[in-house]
Design a binder for these strands. Structure first.
Length: 305
RNA sequence: UGGGGUGUCGCAUAGCGGCUAUUGCAGGAGACUGUAAAUCUCCCGUCUUCGGACAUCGUAGGUUCGAGUCCUACCGCCCCAA
């Protein structure tokens, strides 16, 4: 029987200690890390996204961190193909590759796969956008009812983004969006192990608050100013930056902006926890024993064949 | 001890005697298949078969058809005077 390599996924809410655990595992197994973080992938945002530092990156090689310009288009499906392309090269060095990140949809895209869908062309995107601008959400919903009645029935009709996307895909593909959604879980040629560091809500929120203060001290404001000087991109529709933008526009004072960042980071963490709660594959580790427990579990898998 | 003020949800706050007690902050739950740190939904007095039911504005009385709102007493807090 083939020895399938192992994908050790370190995930969990923001500020839970993923980076350190991932690096220690990478050091231990002489391997590299693929980041699964939808914002750390952009360059010029190291402070606000808590990207691994130069020192940390010296301890273990990190893929997909700071590799894209702020105006670049990136998505979960691109992450899926990028990660799948990188992993084999890591497995040449070690039977264990480490993935580290809190972008839950990216993790799922890699571990379970996304259904095949056409890439939306610029013209289709522009067409649906104009429909939204001229006829509002109601207009786009009417279009959705025509081109994909099944999805129209089930979609959250308040969620403009989902409605727009379904119409875009349906028009692009020429078939209903819902017909492309198979829900099939991809077969992967590797064994997946998922780990998360579990902390109490109070402790996690305390770590978040402290980290936000540190980001401010480290110069988040300047970083945000320089980033927005490049333009107002989706990559900057991000906790830490959108609040700074509101401060720059004079919509809130500095202290309020900082408080909002902490608040929105807590909300983000909560959403990650919600997502995690429905994934029974994730092994929850106590902070103090996280590394030892993860190594034990991985070694057990390594010796199994 | 006297005089004045004040008491509304975890905190803050609105509430000219009359529909469901307002708003903000903080908090909780959830959805999620190509921008996901995005986008969206719900709860936040108690119980709930999720349609509602029952409470409630420091406490106890009173006036009134009707009281968070007016009156009295008490309790707590704040200010001034001693």
């Amino acid at each position: 029987m083939d020895k399938k390599p192992i994908l050790a996924v370190v995930t969990g809410p923001t500020a839970s200690g993923k980076t350190e655990l991932a690096i220690r595992l990478a050091e231990h197994y002489g391997t590299e890390i693929v980041s699964a973080d939808s914002r750390q992938i952009f360059r010029d945002l190291p402070i606000g996204t808590a990207a691994p530092t130069a020192e940390e990156r010296g301890r273990a090689f990190h893929h997909l961190v700071g590799t894209h310009a702020l105006d670049a288009y990136y998505s979960a499906s691109q992450f899926e193909s990028d990660a799948l392309a990188i992993l084999p090269s890591i497995w040449k060095k070690s039977p264990v590759a480490v993935v580290c990140g809190g972008s839950m949809m990216y993790i799922d895209a890699l571990c379970r796969g996304l259904d095949d869908m056409p890439t939306v062309s610029d013209s289709t995107r522009a067409y649906v956008l104009s429909m939204l601008e001229n006829h509002g959400l109601e207009g786009v919903l009417a279009q959705l009812e025509i081109c994909d009645r099944d999805y129209w029935l089930q979609v959250d009709r308040s969620n403009t983004r989902r409605v727009v996307h379904a119409v875009e895909i349906s028009l692009e593909a020429g078939v209903p969006y819902s017909s492309l959604r198979t829900g099939r879980v991809a077969e992967r040629p590797f064994r997946i192990m998922k780990f998360a560091i579990e902390r109490s809500r109070d402790e996690l929120f305390g770590r978040i608050n402290a980290r936000v203060d540190r980001m401010i001290a480290d110069g988040l404001e300047d970083e945000a100013r320089r980033a927005f000087a490049q333009g107002d991109f989706n990559s900057l529709n991000t906790v830490g930056y959108k609040e700074m933008a509101a401060y720059f526009r004079g919509e809130m004072d500095f202290d309020t902006a900082v408080a909002r960042i902490a608040k929105n980071t807590r909300v983000y963490a909560k959403k990650q926890l919600t997502w995690m709660s429905r994934d029974p594959e994730i092994m929850r580790l106590a902070p103090a024993e996280a590394f030892d427990e993860a190594v034990k579990a991985i070694d057990a898998q390594l010796t199994e064949y």
